[in-house]
Design a binder for these strands. Structure first.
Lengths: 127, 127, 127, 127
DNA sequence: GTGGTCTAGACCACT
DNA sequence: GTGGTCTAGACCACA
């Protein structure tokens, strides 16, 4: 289910957070769903339990999941809304990247085309 | 000329690399131009010479500048071409970000609009 | 395992890079193998950690090793292929040296003989 | 006549020394020939006079040229013999390079072929 | 003066 | 523990 790239410059726990967030946004994980336990995921991904824990804690802080001690972690009811708000902030980053590419000679048409392609590949069925 | 944010998560030397690259792409720095000496830039930015050196070394490795010991560092003849090739690779990153935003409910129109805005803000006159 | 000549004109970090490359080519180090940690090697060779780091960084850039912060450095899967490609470029250098020796009166037979001797001394069993 | 690559890692004065040595070995410069003056060469190559001087001094020390103060520098009578002896020492370097290439997968045939090519390209007519 | 290498020692985030 | 970044200060060869 999860795919971790240990060589990436991005911290493992952050990769985990982002993947879970994507699963929530795409409807693979839905409100109320239980997440894998820290230990099982730790074994499955060959990753230090502390790292899993850190990811879960961050998701909890953001309000995307909630944890019930002794039972497990679950996707929050309003997870999707929370994420939509948070992700929108990345528009700034998106613009910065577009500017950088434009500077390198990428045409406006190509940029729009790439955006369109990405849009229809987003992998959720609510067009 | 240069602006460094010491508080950023991004390493100082990397900020320097990116700024110089941007200066080359925008035509502020041109092939043959001499870069500030390691020591002078170190004083100007209140940054350790080693950090400047690291940035220059990276730019040299990439082929964007060349350094002549005892003389100085200069913008390479084909710096712009090298940068265009290297930067184009970020299109993948651009698409990934677009997909993520689309997933969070950002409309296609909004994405295209952001790209267009960015395109015309790129700050170089070669439309 | 490693041997550094502090008096050499060749920088220490470069000696280290070349030795590791040779170890990979000769099969002493194999894909997936973990390299000594920066600190441990620093102690073993009585060399500053920064110098080791510089060597590892260069190997990482070349794609011969990969480093996972918090875990360690490992020989890349395709390290040998990368090295073969990079080293082949030295054929030009080889020819230039041969020409220089020929100019100084070294006979063709002697050159071929030296090459043959070297070939069978290369210390890897894949004849 | 001379060609200097300022970007090379090899010091400029060393490049100059090697080129003059090659000219002597190939018969472009012969015993008794006068070398260009430090000042004229300095202008011609856009190089600091000190650098030229350093090259000439080194050649003088080796016994390849001799200088008569106030008159100029001249190729020594036994320059060719001196150089042949000195260059032969590079056979060690040649073997090391051959070994390295063999390690990278270059076949013995290819090595011999390269040596042969270089031999017949050495650019002196005493086959 | 220039770039390049190295040491010593510190701090950081991540595992 | 790990790698990565940074500072401070030194020394070198070269121009």
């Amino acid at each position: 289910m999860f795919q971790i790239d240990a060589m990436s410059r991005q911290p493992v726990y952050e990769q985990l957070v982002e993947q879970i967030e994507r699963f929530v946004l795409t409807g693979i994980l839905n409100p109320g769903d239980q997440l894998p336990s820290v230990r099982s995921l730790s074994v499955e991904l060959s990753i230090n339990p502390n790292t899993i824990q850190k990811a879960y804690t961050e998701l909890d802080t953001k309000g995307i999941i909630y944890s019930i001690p002794g039972i497990g972690c679950f996707v929050a009811e309003n997870a999707k809304e929370v994420l939509s708000v948070l992700t929108r902030r990345k528009l700034t980053e998106f613009k910065a990247l577009a500017k950088e590419l434009a500077l390198a000679g990428v045409s406006l048409e190509e940029l729009k085309g790439a955006a369109t392609t990405a849009y229809y590949e987003r992998g959720v069925k609510n067009d």
